[in-house]
Every structure is written in C-alpha cells, then in structure tokens.
C-alpha cells in the first residue's frame, strides 16, 4: 500500500489556493506581504511566481481597504481571497466586514452576492503578546450574513478553504498560527469539505468534548491520556462555527450524558456559550448526568511571558483535568 501523502496545514492551504487559481481566473489573492515575502507565516509562498503580481496582490497596510477591495471585487464577478496578517488586525476591517460584506445581500433584497474569503491566523503560543494573539471568531459568529470557518487539520484546511471560495457568501476563515506546521494526510485531489458539517473526530462513550481549531488537537491528546485510565472522550470539531451544524453534538451528548466545550477565545461571550445553550435547549438535556462545562481562555489579554501565555489558554493538562472531573462526578 502506498504511503499517504502528508502536507503541513500551511502547505495544504497553499495547494488549495494554487489549484483554485489554476482553474478559475476570477480567484485572486490580496493582502499584506503575501507576494515576494510569502505572507507573514509563509502560507502564500511562491504563489506570486506562478500567478504574478496581478493575481497575488501586495497591499499597503490598509486593512479596511483590503476588506473593501474584496467586497467590491466579489460584487462585480471576482472571487477574492484576502489575507489579514494577524487576526488582531481584522479589528481595522470591521466596518467593511460587518456593515458591508455581511449586509449587502440582505439590504438589497437578496439581489447581490459577496463571494469572498478573508483568511486570518488567530491564536496565542508564539510569544507575540496581546495585540498579535487574539481569537476573535465569535465576533463574526454574532453577525448574520457572515460564515465562520475554523479548520483544525491540514486535510480540513484544504477542503474547507475550497468550499469557502466556492461559496457565494462572505466567509471568515480562521487559521491558527500553531497549526501551520502540523502535518497530516492531504490528497492532491481538488476535494471539498462541505461547510456546516460538524465532525466526530474521535468516538468515545464517557464525555463529549466539543473543541475548535487547535483545541481539537489538544483534546485528542487529552483523549489519549485519559484512555489509559479507561475514560473515553468523544471529540467533536464543528469546523464551521456559523452556520452551525449542531445535530452531531446533540446526538453525542445523548450518548455520553456529559459535555465539555473547549476553545482558546476567552470564555465570557465565547462560542462555547452557544454550544452549551444548544445542548441545554435540546433533547440531550434529559440525558445529562453532569453540568455542561466550558474550558476557555482566561478573561485577560494574552500575556508576553512564556509561562503566563501558556496558562492563559486551555492546554492538554487542563483538558485532561477538567474532563476527568466531569466523568468522575467531581464537580
């Protein structure tokens, strides 16, 4: 049997963009330092050599301008893929995304569409401190008209990006800096991972763990640890946060009777609250054997010091600890 081809998360994204640009001349890339520099995290490296500066467009440091350029191009027949260098900087694009991209279609009576994707790396763990480590995905989850996608594996990164570019709506595509170098099986095919399909990534019977982005990786590591103690976690990755496919989550909680939601963004007002509410309001409520818990970032800006930074967000140990308590009834 031939060995399965492996790519990193960053390579998978790049291959997806290359394939889309080869097959559809309406697709182009736009962002800061994405050309010769290859992007701050190297995701677009080499694409300018293949497609030229006309389709891999380096911009001035103008995040509102980047978002607006994507919207205007999308409204007039192009399929732009924008890059915001760090998710933190999307705060400078908010008006264009929230008040324009998300609303144009509805305001115009359903007569326009904005098929654009805005990629951005979120998350902490690189020592970049408070202004380069944000996890702001839930801001966008709160906006009707936007879709929010957060892949956790190289395979999903490629398939979800393709689905996002082919979608006719504005998609906020949240990558994670620490995932860029993670490796996994990625076929060369031009495959799609459909949006709004929640995935059970590990089956287990004792506790449902709903995790996003890098927390899926950490939850799987925690599941390995706990399996040694006979505790079986069922790990679920929503992959698309909005519109959310909650059925697999509810089904899982009916089976396990327990749920823990894990994300890096701060707990207060985070995506976890939505998951908890969906479970509590569903038929799974009758199956609950324990309170539904969240494990999320502390309600603080990300600190610079390595140890402080580490403790600001959930880690494998904290997931193990919290999961064990829930399963053992020690809450």
């Amino acid at each position: 049997m031939p060995e399965l081809r492996e790519l990193t998360y960053a390579e998978a994204l790049r291959e997806c963009m290359r394939q889309l640009m080869e097959e559809d001349e309406r697709v182009f890339l736009i962002g800061e330092d994405i050309g010769v520099y290859g992007g701050a995290f190297g995701v677009t490296a080499g694409l300018i050599d293949l497609f030229g500066a006309e389709r891999v467009i380096d911009t001035p440091i103008s995040e509102a301008g980047i978002a607006g350029a994507c919207i205007g191009a999308a409204l007039t027949g192009m399929r732009p893929i924008g890059e915001i260098q760090f998710m933190d900087f999307v705060t400078l694009s908010m008006e264009q995304l929230v008040l324009q991209a998300a609303k144009v279609r509805f305001m115009f009576g359903g007569k326009a569409s904005v098929p654009m994707v805005l990629r951005m790396p979120g998350g902490s763990g690189t020592g970049a401190a408070a202004q380069h480590s944000e996890s702001l995905e839930n801001w966008f989850v709160h906006v009707p008209g936007l879709k929010v996608v957060m892949p956790s594996t190289p395979y999903d990164a490629k398939g979800l990006l393709r689905a996002s570019v082919l979608d006719n709506n504005p998609v906020i595509f949240v990558e994670h800096k620490l995932l860029y170098k993670t490796k996994g099986h990625v076929p060369e095919d031009r495959y799609i991972v459909p949006l709004s399909q929640t995935k059970v990534v590990r089956e287990g019977k004792h506790l449902t763990v709903v995790a996003t982005s890098i927390m899926v990786v950490r939850a799987l590591q925690a599941a390995e640890e706990l399996a040694k103690e006979g505790i079986e976690l069922e790990v679920i990755d929503p992959r698309t946060l909005k519109p959310l496919d909650d059925a697999p989550i509810i089904e899982s909680v009916k089976k396990t009777g327990r749920a823990l939601v894990v994300h890096e963004a701060v707990e207060m007002g985070g995506f976890g609250g939505e998951i908890v509410a969906r479970i509590a309001a569903s038929e799974a409520f009758d199956y609950l054997e324990a309170p539904i818990r969240r494990l999320a970032g502390l309600d603080i800006p990300i600190p610079y010091n390595r140890e402080l930074e580490y403790h600001a967000v959930p880690q494998v140990e904290s997931i193990v600890r919290e999961a064990r308590k829930l399963v053992r009834g020690e809450y």
Partner: peptide, 11 residues
C-alpha cells in the same frame, strides 16, 4: 469608498 477600490480592481 473602499468597495469602489474592489470594483476598480475587478474592472
């Protein structure tokens, strides 16, 4: 105004 940039780029 930023949307016009995108329209111009598209043209």
């Amino acid at each position: 105004i930023p949307i016009a940039v995108g329209v111009g780029l598209s043209i």
